[in-house]
């Protein structure tokens, strides 16, 4: 009985740790790539697009952090976030390589 509880506890802690890692460091990386993408595609001057994207980034971060603790599957959470991050990162790289920076 107590052994079962311990095993369950261990699993629970691993689950929480995996979600927390997704919700903070991975989230920061993904939010950063999305923020760069928004700063590249917002209309208007480079300065306005940069500021606008920066204003939005905290909504994205908070949303992803909550999602990390709301979804059922931790593995799908990680796969999903990494996919979004890599896709946005690739798009960032292409847009900067193509359009250049000031």
């Amino acid at each position: 009985m107590s052994r079962a509880v311990e095993v369950l506890r261990g699993a629970r802690w691993r689950d929480i740790a995996a979600r927390a890692l997704a919700a903070v460091p991975l989230n920061y990386a993904v939010t950063s790539t999305i923020t760069v993408l928004i700063a590249r595609i917002l209309p208007g001057s480079a300065q306005q697009a940069s500021i606008g994207a920066t204003l939005l980034c905290f909504i994205i971060f908070a949303g992803v952090a909550m999602t990390a603790f709301a979804v059922r599957s931790v593995s799908r959470l990680w796969v999903g976030l990494i996919t979004i991050g890599v896709a946005a990162g690739l798009a960032d790289w292409c847009l900067i390589a193509w359009g250049g920076r000031l």
Partner: peptide
């Protein structure tokens, strides 16, 4: 303190 936490919005458009 946004640019302290998220400087990448500026880095996206400015090399310097």
């Amino acid at each position: 303190l946004a640019t302290h936490y998220m400087p990448w919005g500026i880095a996206a458009n400015y090399a310097d």
